[in-house]
Computed example of a mutant assay.
Amino acid sequence: MRIGVLDLASSLISIDSTNPGKLELEIADFLGDVLEDLGFNVERQRYSMRMNLFAYRNQERVRLLFCGHLDTVPPTEGWERSPFSPKVMRGRLFGLGACDMKGAIAAMIAAGVEALAEDKEVGVGFLLTSDEEVGMSGAKLAAPKLRDLFKNLRLCLIGEPTDLRLVTCHKGVLRATLRVKGVASHSSIPERGVNAVHIGINVLKRMMERGIPQLAHPILGRPTLQVTWVRGGVAENIIPDSFEAKIDARLIPQETEDRRKLLMDIAGEWGERVELEFGLALPPYEAPEIPEIAAISRIMGTVGLDSRPFGVPYLTEASVYWEKGIPSVIVGPGDIEQAHRPNESVYITKLALAKKLYRSLVLLLNRG
């Protein structure tokens, strides 16, 4: 039995799985039913109002596991048509999630079905998660089960948009909220107050000066620190008594100094008026040198793809799986330039090539 990549991707796009928003229950139930109809064993891992899916055939032979996320970001302004109405034109499939990453999920499932049609004993496995776009709670919940479910698992393949390049490393993330408590007064007598905005600006300036390690990774480049959101003040004639800012730090693998402690020490220089609360924190990822990744590189070369190791600045679920000792590579048909933007799309030729690549990898790594 075969399944059309374009048809399945279009069906997935038509289901609203925005996060925050509609979330993933509907799309997870739909895909669970599709996979069961295709002959896969399906385990639904439901939590809160969300669901992860594990699906497999010949699970003892699954060394390479296909991984993807079911959620999308909410649509932004500027869509020319409904983001949930898939449309094929100019050689592309348009729709929310076409690139990130419903197209990749469709290619993975189609590849698995074709591999089983060629060899019914080949191992094929999928992990489809919820909440990748916000907190990665789905991957965090699923990761501890992987070794028990797939005893011979060697590698996850994550279908995030890489334009079918072999991504073996990416930066980590550390997010924090800076809060400053001041004292309000009339702006004509600032000495009677404590300006929380002034303090906040000085703290952030010090963090930008001293909170970024002077290091560089040969592929990922330098670590970063960005202020992404600020709020402070009530009116133009009042000394502000509060200030708040969001901070996004991106980490590289060779950072040995704890960035969390570094930022805490800087904030601590201003005493009790300054508070730093940490949010999402995941380490950088760098794949180990294992035979399976070398084999993937060789196969990519045979189908005309760039097989050189590549890195990306954004975060993926590889960080979560690596915390459980499971390595990953990231290879997907989408282009990150198309993700999280109006009129998101993916080339149909890239979907077809992804299916061909994924099928070859399953037949190479999950036999015998």
Results as ranks from 00 to 15, higher is better:
residue 89 M to Y: 09
residue 95 G to K: 01
residue 72 T to H: 05
residue 37 D to F: 01
residue 105 I to T: 11
residue 108 M to L: 11
residue 125 G to E: 11
residue 39 G to M: 06
residue 69 H to G: 04
residue 57 R to P: 04
residue 124 V to H: 10
residue 58 N to W: 01
residue 85 S to G: 01
residue 124 V to F: 09
residue 94 F to P: 05
residue 76 T to M: 00
residue 44 R to S: 12
residue 36 E to P: 11
residue 88 V to T: 15
residue 53 L to F: 12
residue 56 Y to L: 02
residue 109 I to Y: 09
residue 126 F to H: 14
residue 88 V to K: 12
residue 100 D to R: 00
residue 78 G to Y: 04
residue 33 D to P: 01
residue 79 W to S: 14
residue 106 A to S: 14
residue 40 F to D: 14
residue 96 L to H: 13
residue 109 I to L: 03
residue 57 R to M: 00
residue 69 H to T: 13
residue 115 A to Q: 07
residue 49 M to R: 09
residue 36 E to S: 12
residue 46 R to N: 13
residue 112 G to Y: 07
residue 43 E to R: 03
residue 84 F to K: 09
residue 44 R to Q: 10
residue 92 R to E: 15
residue 105 I to Q: 06
residue 37 D to R: 11
residue 79 W to H: 13
residue 93 L to A: 14
residue 78 G to F: 00
residue 91 G to F: 04
residue 64 L to D: 12
residue 107 A to W: 06
residue 93 L to E: 14
residue 43 E to H: 08
residue 43 E to K: 00
residue 36 E to N: 04
residue 74 P to T: 11
residue 91 G to V: 02
residue 126 F to A: 15
residue 69 H to I: 01
residue 56 Y to G: 05
residue 104 A to N: 07
residue 90 R to N: 15
residue 31 L to Q: 07
residue 98 A to F: 06
residue 67 C to D: 10
residue 57 R to K: 08
residue 62 V to M: 04
residue 109 I to M: 06
residue 108 M to T: 10
residue 35 L to E: 05
residue 76 T to Y: 07
residue 120 K to Q: 15
residue 78 G to S: 08
residue 90 R to Y: 13
residue 45 Q to E: 15
residue 60 E to S: 10
residue 77 E to L: 02
residue 125 G to R: 02
residue 48 S to I: 01
residue 30 F to N: 09
residue 112 G to F: 06
residue 122 V to L: 05
residue 87 K to C: 09
residue 68 G to K: 00
residue 117 A to N: 15
residue 85 S to T: 14
residue 67 C to I: 04
residue 41 N to Q: 04
residue 119 D to T: 09
residue 48 S to D: 15
residue 120 K to A: 15
residue 66 F to Y: 14
residue 35 L to S: 09
